[in-house]
Structure formats: structure tokens, C-alpha cells
Amino acid sequence: MKNRLKELRTGQGWSQAALGDKLDVSRQTIIAIETGRYDPSLPLAFKLARLFDCRIEDMFDDEGEN
């Protein structure tokens, strides 16, 4: 699933490791989400949306997904 995580993260000036620490996930997890290789669970998506003060659908784009 496409997402704006990298854009939002770099906008805050955070590294992948720093974002991982804020969410209590590994840097590998952040990389996997940013590159679209892993879609986060609903609880993690909510944590991300709260952290960046936006809606889940503003961060993730399921267009083109089956």
C-alpha cells in the first residue's frame, strides 16, 4: 500500500530509528512500511496517524489495491 510516511517523517526531521523508538517498533519495520513492503496493523496505523496528527486515509492510499 502506498503511503506518505517518509514524507511526514522527514517533514518532522526524524530518522527512521527515531520514529521507530516513538512507536516502539524496529527501524526495519519503519523501512518496510515506507517502502510499501509491509502494511501496518490497524493499531499501528492509528498510532502513526495520532503521532502525525492526521487521518489514516491521509497517510495511506489503497487505490489500486485489490
Partner: peptide
Amino acid sequence: ETDEFERS
């Protein structure tokens, strides 16, 4: 103990 991606 790990996160959801590492678990997967």
C-alpha cells in the same frame, strides 16, 4: 516480545 513486522 518483538513488533508486528519482525513477528511476521
